[in-house]
Design a binder for these strands. Sequence first.
DNA 1: GTAACATTTAGTTGCTTAGCTAATTATAGT
DNA 2: ACTATAATTAGCTAAGCAACTAAATGTTAC
Lengths: 121, 121
Amino acid sequence: MNNLTQTFKALSDQNRLRIIVTLMEYDELCACQFTELLGIAGATVSRHLGVLHNAGLVQSRKDGRWIFYSLSNTAASCRPVLDWIREEARSCPEVKEDMARLSKILACNPEEICRKQRTGA
Amino acid sequence: MNNLTQTFKALSDQNRLRIIVTLMEYDELCACQFTELLGIAGATVSRHLGVLHNAGLVQSRKDGRWIFYSLSNTAASCRPVLDWIREEARSCPEVKEDMARLSKILACNPEEICRKQRTGA
DNA sequence: GTAACATTTAGTTGCTTAGCTAATTATAGT
DNA sequence: ACTATAATTAGCTAAGCAACTAAATGTTAC
């Protein structure tokens, strides 16, 4: 039962849902790209990703200084829920905006993104 | 998107999940029966039911002094999630205990339950 | 080695929420 | 009308959590 509540808790935050929905469209993104997308502090993004990871929804892969996140393979058990989210998210304007914004973000490489975040440009 | 997070927030509490799972097995229960089942204050149960109602997951029917709750008809949109919960809940010992306890509770009529709660017997 | 840098962890703050008791509302029975 | 009673609402407290800044960790490049 704790599994269930933990999963729902992980999904009951708008920013975390945005992460999940984004990962349904783009296989893999690094932390700085989420930071850019969500417009909140990197540390906060890191915590959100940690919550999703603890709930078994997301997995990470380290590549040098970057850490890439993707939907967890072991999240298969809650696939129906993820499918439902995807379906419902279709009609959310926030999600559409995210997708539009993300295509711009992905036009730059991660290094540029991070530099932009540092310099605050 | 708020719909989504609201739904997940409503489902991310153990006691509320127990209510939902119970309503999948028993069409309709009154507030005092949930109070007996969950073993928490009636006021708290009322608030939980309110949260589920606001999320559109539960509907209520007034019959005299009693208010009976059931899964909402309009909850059809999140049917996949409810189905998933039901499936996952099968293996939860808490749920099995609840079901066992509930059959005892239902052996009495609501009036008896409520009296028991008042007198604390 | 050390300087730059991507991410996480620590520590703080303000808001939300689950729980309680007490008060209020609405109904039933006398 | 009055009392009892099922449920909700109000008001409180303690715990949990999302956000931030600053410090720590681990990695790349000189």
